[in-house]
Write a protein that binds this DNA or RNA. Sequence first.
RNA 1: GCGUCGGUCGUAUAGCGGCAAUUACACGAGACUGUAAAUCUCGCGACCAUUGGUCUCCGGGGGUUCGAGUCCCUCCCGACGCA
Length: 402
Amino acid sequence: MSGPIKFTIENKLEGKLGRAGLLETPHGTIETPSFVAVGTKATVKAITPEMLSSLGAQVMIANTYHLFLQPGDEIVKKAGGLHDFMNWHGPMMTDSGGFQVFSLGSAYGKGISKVTKEIDPQLLLNEAPEDPDKPKIVSIDPDGVTFKSHLDGTSYYLTPEKSIEIQHNLGADIIFAFDECTSPLEPDHYQREALDRTHRWAKRSLDYHRSKENSKHQALFGIVHGGRSEKLRKESAEAIKALDFDGFGIGGSFSKVDMTTAVQWVNEILPEDKPRHLLGIGEPEDLFMGVENGVDLFDCVAPTRMARNGTIYTKTGKINMMNAQYVDDFTPIEKDCPCYTCKNYKRAYLSHLFRAKEMLAGTLATIHNLYFIINLVHSMRIAIIDGTFDDFKKAFLARYTA
RNA sequence: GCGUCGGUCGUAUAGCGGCAAUUACACGAGACUGUAAAUCUCGCGACCAUUGGUCUCCGGGGGUUCGAGUCCCUCCCGACGCA
């Protein structure tokens, strides 16, 4: 074991793919399964790194595309890397920019999200409708992707090598290969084409990475794709597995019903001794599904974005703090929750802060939501170690209404 | 007391003969899954209803007109000016 990270399994779920483990990185050890806080632009929105740490976060993930545009990876490098730049000294990851191929590309302005409730067959037939009023800001070619900056319209060309170079400058402990996240609405022939491209890019990402000194202290994860297709998913898992990455990401925009099968197909193939990260997934029921099926790491904007938009996780489901009923509700945000927000503030106060558009609203809600999700995944870990996962899952989901 | 301007959906506004009536905020609800997001969508007179329909509405009352927030008369209220 000579890579920059070390993964050891502590206990497994009987008869299933799930496991609890330890992932050692140059900036500390992550107890898995673990939820990775999203800090796209080198900040977990609304909170400081100290708050992030004290609410129980062990690891966070920033974004190549956003930091490349602003302030620029060279600036971050001069600052001494992301850890010093943003004052987060725990384990850190960076995403490659591959998701932006989707969110700024095929999903741009079309109301398509990462997880669709169901696939509308009408949309599938017509493929994605083009809006002639909206200039395309992403265009893909065999070598890379041209982005028109969403900030000022400047064109930038991102290739696998460029993405890795940027991620080397950013200096996270774990970085991702440059991939293409496709829309589930794309037809089969396109999924095929995009998958082949992602595999070529994976190889190029890895080759470039290994040719640099940074590969000694930064780990590189390859990303499995394949959309909704069993054939492509399994093929992708085999192809990425063959490439000697330090760990794996499972990517894609899913229809809710396709997610479970996709994760199972892939994790049955991926090597057991390397960590797996289910990219961009984080609703409670999905986290149970992922953990049960062998996912070690999750990241998701849901807890932080929901928090800023006034939605709070509770053990019985999400509540919208903007609703009239909370104006004079002087009970804690959530009874029995030990987080800073719940220990110190009442619903009526949070309701007031949101209505008054005070910044503290987002901060307090973020602290609670992140604690809720991070603690949920951590509890799953403990349940795996204790051998009580099924009971824990049953009890949680019985109370929780999505 | 006289004169001028003004009174429109909770508030602030648009409207100057075809209007259930503009816009913003507020209010009510919903959405959000590798962050174009402290954002976005919908609703906001009432009652039916499948597209759609019926009624009631722009300070009060009266008038002109096929048709009136919109024009005329009068009353009430407010601001300003002159007494």
